[in-house]
Design a binder for these strands. Sequence first.
DNA 1: TAAATTGTTAAACAATTATTAAAACGACAG
DNA 2: CTGTCGTTTTAATAATTGTTTAACAATTTA
Lengths: 106, 106
Amino acid sequence: MKSNQVVEALSALAQPTRLAIFRLLVVCGPAGMAAGQVAEKLGVSPANMSHHFKTLSHAGLIVARQDGRFIYYSANFAVMNGMLAYMTENCCEGDPDVCDVSVKKC
Amino acid sequence: MKSNQVVEALSALAQPTRLAIFRLLVVCGPAGMAAGQVAEKLGVSPANMSHHFKTLSHAGLIVARQDGRFIYYSANFAVMNGMLAYMTENCCEGDPDVCDVSVKKC
DNA sequence: TAAATTGTTAAACAATTATTAAAACGACAG
DNA sequence: CTGTCGTTTTAATAATTGTTTAACAATTTA
């Protein structure tokens, strides 16, 4: 994963509403959630929500899937994991005892 | 870890220079690296570097330690791990097979 | 004490980002 | 078709962020 992609992903998540969106979608899993439902759940206007979806999509953190009139968004774990890996690359010069860079499995 | 702390940490890392600083310090481990050395290594002016250090420090991602004339900065793994855990909380409704939220141990 | 080194702070400007409101779009039901 | 629902786009404004320059503080060396 390239540096600028990682920065883009971090920027996308570095905003309260978008972080909340992403966390919500992470819990939903691959099934995702309809755009409107996310907006209602978080109390955000549709237009504003759409902008945030666009930002997250462009960063590759979420994926859109149309189903009839609804658009379902879901979290893309591959990009998130790539981002996490990039940040901790070669940490502590390879000594695992010094740092504990692990995330509880879900 | 609270939402606004996580957003602050993500914002701090969502910038090319600061991401590079953090990655450099992650590799250095607890010993850290002198401010000037980091600045030189990344080709950033001292004043600009100082601002970035401040941002990262305030987010808790790095820690400063004075040693004579030099100030050594080092990465704070606890905050980073807290941030990662927050993002993946309750992912996939608890089904570990659906997503693989793990980071290679260093 | 004076000069040199290391790093921080303050102020200003340029650039980016977030939010809102209004208009427009595409999918579907009648 | 026509109307409505769900969502996106456009355009404008407000707020935040990054960089630079110059001045300042702390520590060591002469």
